[in-house]
Structures are given as C-alpha cells and as structure tokens.
Write a protein that binds this DNA or RNA. Structure first.
Lengths: 240, 240
DNA sequence: TGGTTTTCTTGATCTCGATCAAGGAGCCGT
DNA sequence: ACGGCTCCTTGATCGAGATCAAGAAAACCA
C-alpha cells in the first residue's frame, strides 16, 4: 500500500504554506495524475537508526531527501578539522539541496534518532518538472525557503548574548513543531547539549548553565532531553 | 546596442563554472535562439549610487538581480532591532533568491558603491524555463550555490578566534575576486570596518586591531580601504 | 575650499563565556 | 542487573574580546 497517497488524503492543508503547496512527504502541489507520477518517483527506504548517515561530504548527489518522521543533524568540518553543526532537520523538512550544482554533497547528514526518509531521485524530479510546471515552482520555493532559513540562522548568530541565542533556538524549535501540529509545549530534544552548543557557537557547559538559569527563572522545566516551555512570552521577550 | 550580447561574445568561458554554465550577466547556459529570448527578458536600469537600495525588507518580489559591476551588502534586522549584515555581493553574483517562495523580500540590499544591476523579472524567467530546460537547471544551480555559500558562512562563524574569521573573510574575498579575473593581490574593500565586524560577529574596533596586528606581522598592508595581501600562505595557515 | 560628518585607530578597563576539573546521572549492550 | 559508556551538571579560574573614551584621518558637501 502506498502511503504517499494516504498522507495526501489525510493531510491536505490548502494554502497552509506559502506557494499554495500541500504538505506531503515533499511539499508539492500536485493533483490526480501528477501525484501518480510522483508515486513512481519516490523511493521507500529502511528507516535510519540513530547515528546512521544519510549522506556524507563527498558522496555523489543523487536525490533530495524528505524526512517523514524523526530528526537529523547536518554538519561540516571547519578548516581546522572540527565538526560544525549547520542545522537540525525535523519531520517534513528537505535535505540535500546544497549538492545540486556540483553533484556532490558538501556536508554530512546523520540521524539523531530512528528516522524515516523519503528519497526523491533528482534526475527523475527534474524530468518530471518539465511535465508539471508547478513542481518546478515548488522546488524553487523549497530552495528559497532553505536560503531564508540559513539567513535567519546568520541573524541569530549575530546576536551578542548567549541568553538570546538560546531563547531563539528554543523558540525556533517550538515554532517548527507547532507548524507540524504539536499539541503541547514540550520540546523533546533529539540532539545533545554538545550539538546545541556547537550549533549556537558556545561551549556546551554554557548551554547547560543557560538552561539551568532559565529553569531557575521558571521560564522552562528541564527533564533530561525534555524541555517544557512554561513561559513562552518571557522567552520571546528575551529573544528580542 | 544591447550589451548583454556583447558580454556574451567577450566573456564565453566554457565550463569555467560547475553546471557547465557561462558567466554572463546571469550565469546561464544558452545558445543562439535562447539567448535572444533572454535579451528580451533582461531589464536595464540606471546604476545605483552608493547608499541606494535595490530592495528592502517587505518589498514585493518581482525580479532576481545580477550585479554587473560594483558591490552590495544585504542585511536584516535582528529581533531586537539591530542591523545584521548577512552578506557582501560582488560583480557577477545574484541577489533576491530568498524572496521566491513568499513573494516578499526578507532582507535589505544596498549599494556599497556605484553599482550596475541587471534585472531579471522572475515571472518571465519562469515561463522561459519551460521553453529552455537547461535554464531551469541553471536556476537550481544558482540557488544551490547560494545555499552552500550560507552554509560556508555558518562554518566560518563557528570558528572561535577572531583572527581566523578575519583571515577567512579576507581569503574569501580574495578568491571571489580572483575568479572574476583580478590580477593583483589588492582588495579594495567597499564596506566599512563596522560592516565587516557586524558580518563577522565582532566589534569594529576588533576588526581594526586585528588588521593592524596582521600588518605588524607583514601579512598584509593597509592603506585605508585597500588591503594589499603580502603573504597569502600565512593567511591560509591562520585560517586553518 | 573649508568645515562638518563619518570612519578609523589606539588605549584602558571590565565582563562574559571559554576552559579546566570532577562528580553524577542516564543509557547501552551483554 | 551490571559495568562501562556517553552525556550532563556545577564550580573555579582565566583570558579574549566588548565596551567606553578620545583623538586622527578620510570622505563628503555646500
């Protein structure tokens, strides 16, 4: 049974995103016939276990990957050989777009937990683009969004205080989860403090201390990797 | 007289870029007929003076913009209202891709000096994509490259020491200028120390001191906004 | 051209967060 | 359930870089 179609039936959210796209495995605006074409295109995969790599720097680019369930981190190596986290990716987001023009991946993508992936062979995607002009627009949109995500990240790193970065990081996760229909205020972090610190450009001890401080202030409640956001408004105030 | 065709004749550089594209005003892989179509598409504009805005946050998205000559900076506002520079853009680079999916620009783009711009109305670009499949690929490539540029930036900001960031910033400019066929080792910075500091996430005084220190070490020579790179290898060593 | 403004440099001080260190808690496979 | 991991917390110290300040040098403009 093809679960792409199932998802399409279950999750049609008209105009919920810009571009008027629906949120499927890959957010595309297709109907009947085109959807069938997409079905043939998408490759199912065995789910990734925690620590499994989806691709590595230098791997030949073949496909884009949409996360159906789970989460991943992507990272590169700084010029002096240290790991630098460039992003965390949640359910519904698309990876691999940095590789399109040089046919080679420029970062590593690793699963942070059990993660199901939807593989979209790019050559097939490209030829389908010719038959389905709206798909071309969708792809442009997805890439545009990725560019904006990165710019947003750059803005975040620009802020001076660690407290702000931390607040923004938490709020960003919160918003992304809410978009996916999360019901409560609990963030289940799949990444380590180490990863968060690396991502935000601070020491992991500082992440720990910052969270502890926010707990003291009753802004949130820490239970290991679960962060319960108690006072979102305060968090927003800190963020700016 | 149409100077796009002139440029095409003068500057054909086969396979000089990935994607097998040529570097025109916009790097596209077109021949005869398609090129004529492009000619009709491109809008000429009066050159921007220093300080002129190409677009601002919130402006309706209409076109992509390729820089024919000059330089620009793009910046957003952090959540607490301060300016955050997200990029410097040199001759041959393309701006505006962050706006494609929401039809609205998400950053400000301002000229750092007298700058000539080549405007590419996006709707026309999109319909031309249907007739010229290679254009579609090119556009994907340009956006992919922009994504990678941002990731690279994130990697750079990840490095701890200011010295490294400074070295990488200078080398990055150097490489981009060399690609455009620069002959010597002189960087003519069109941006202020303030902008550089903002971009690199450090105080502008620190930029000043860092440059002074590199001059003491005979790595470079400062003459106002002109930086003569004396010892590129040392710079690379510092960068990592 | 001279005067005003912006930008750059350099110095002195202070603070935030890195780093080092050590103990505790959770998680894994066997 | 146990030992051996990795991951997280918390404390103490230290230094890189922010900030404040003030003067010099360019750039701009009428």
């Amino acid at each position: 049974m093809n679960n792409l179609k199932q998802e399409a039936k279950l999750k049609v959210r008209p105009a919920c995103e810009s571009c008027g796209v629906r949120t499927l495995c890959l957010p595309v605006s297709l109907d009947g016939e085109a959807l069938t074409l997409m079905d043939d295109l998408v490759k199912r995969r065995a789910p990734l276990k925690k620590g499994d790599y989806l691709f590595r720097t230098g791997d030949k680019f073949k496909s884009l990957y949409a996360i159906q369930y789970g989460s991943m981190k992507s990272y590169g190596l700084t010029m002096d050989g240290k790991e630098q986290v460039t992003g965390f990716h949640l359910t519904g987001e698309v990876l691999g777009m940095d590789a399109i023009d040089e046919d080679v991946h420029h970062c590593n993508a690793v699963a942070l937990e059990k993660t199901e992936i939807c593989e979209l062979p790019f050559s097939a995607l490209e030829s389908l683009q010719n038959d389905v002009p709206s798909l071309q627009r969708d792809l442009n949109c997805i890439m545009s969004r990725e560019i904006r995500r990165d710019h947003h990240m750059l803005l975040m790193l620009g802020s001076t205080t660690v407290e702000q970065r931390m607040a923004r990081f938490l709020l960003n996760l919160y918003e992304r989860l809410q978009k996916r229909g999360a019901e409560n205020n609990v963030l289940n972090l799949s990444m380590t403090r180490q990863d968060i610190g690396n991502y935000l450009g601070v020491a992991f001890e500082t992440v720990s201390r910052q969270l502890a401080h926010m707990q003291d202030e009753s802004i949130l409640e820490i239970k290991n990797r679960s962060i319960h956001l108690i006072d979102v408004e305060r968090l927003e105030a800190i963020a700016g």
